[in-house]
């Protein structure tokens, strides 16, 4: 925690000269520090050497401890311990290849698909280890939905795309019930108004942003508890991106969301919690405001200031 002394939370005049010079090269960090110092009421307590916040963390839904992931001989993740709180957006950030997507895919066991992948450690969903022998992956994935980097609507109609999950899981007893699940999901994904007249059109006929919202509708039609999003906006234009971001902000009231993003601005805009990954290690985690304004670790600071990444 020695590095904490480098963090310019003190008034500038009190900082050692070297630290000041360092800080001046990084106006972004300085600015946000000032902002946080102004806004947060507990800014005094955050000066304590171990700034683990307790205030904003709700009930913990998922928890990984000492998670190690190997692809063949190469280790992709090292001892990751992280908690995912309920009804919040947790953003995973870091340079590409840092393991954030790998981590996300551990949460619904999507890594099982890859032959050479080996997962060690524990991943708990409410106290139950999801890698436990009695766990049914199919059921797990019904509880933890996922949205991918590139919109991947099935080559089916819009309706069938959304109805796919409820159908395989048998969630609707009647045609009417299925209809209503599809409508609700499309509405929740803010897509209904745009497609209500062409539910039988192929899902691939939609624009990129619409396709991604279709994929979100498809995921929430199964009524998951947690939604994982793997860079959901990276293939979209800015307008579509802001639509999805607004949607994510809406969804967090009903769902717990974990989102991988390479865009720090996006993490800052939509997430409440941020975890910074670097070369397979979890470097820093905390409230988004805190991580962006007052990173503890120099690597986080470098990334946020744009020096790496």
């Amino acid at each position: 925690m020695d590095c904490m002394t480098m963090t310019p939370t003190k008034p500038l005049s009190e900082l050692p000269l070297a630290a000041l010079q360092f800080a001046q090269q990084k106006p972004f960090v300085l600015q946000s520090t000032e902002r946080e110092a102004d806004m947060t009421t507990d800014s005094v307590s955050s000066r304590s050497p171990a700034p683990v916040e307790v205030t904003s963390v709700g009930r913990i839904r998922m928890q990984t401890s000492d998670l190690n992931v190997h692809y063949g001989d190469t280790q992709a993740l090292h001892d990751i311990s992280l908690e995912i709180p309920e009804n919040q957006v947790t953003a995973l950030i870091g340079p590409s290849g840092c393991g954030k997507s790998t981590y996300l895919r551990c949460l619904n066991r999507m890594n099982d698909v890859i032959d050479s992948c080996r997962v060690e450690g524990s991943v708990k969903l409410d106290d139950a280890d999801i890698y436990g022998p009695e766990v049914d992956v199919v059921e797990l994935r019904a509880r933890i939905g996922m949205v991918f980097q590139k919109p991947n609507p099935f080559p089916k109609s819009i309706y069938d795309n959304v109805a796919y999950g409820p159908r395989i899981h048998g969630l609707a007893d009647s045609r009417e019930e299925l209809d209503s699940i599809v409508m609700e999901s499309l509405e929740q994904a803010r897509l209904f108004d745009e497609v209500k007249d062409r539910l039988q059109a192929p899902g691939t006929s939609l624009s990129g942003g619409q396709q991604q919202r279709l994929c979100i509708a498809r995921a929430i039609a199964v009524k998951p508890e947690i939604i994982l999003m793997d860079e959901p906006c990276s293939a979209l234009d800015p307008i579509a991106t802001s639509g999805i971001e607004a949607l994510i902000d809406d969804l967090k009231d009903a769902y717990t969301i974990v989102m991988v993003t390479h865009s720090m601005q996006q993490a800052a805009r939509v997430s409440q919690r941020t975890a910074y990954f670097h070369m397979g290690q979890l470097v820093e985690t905390g409230s988004t405001d805190k991580v962006f304004s007052d990173p503890r670790d120099p690597r986080t600071r470098d990334y946020i200031s744009g020096r790496i990444g």
Partner: peptide
């Protein structure tokens, strides 16, 4: 991505194959 999309929704492999991949 199509296969993963189906699996992520909780398809079994055979459901993903029969309903998504084969079509």
């Amino acid at each position: 991505s199509l296969k993963e999309g189906a699996l992520a929704l909780g398809s079994t492999r055979s459901e993903a194959i029969r309903q998504i991949i084969i079509p």
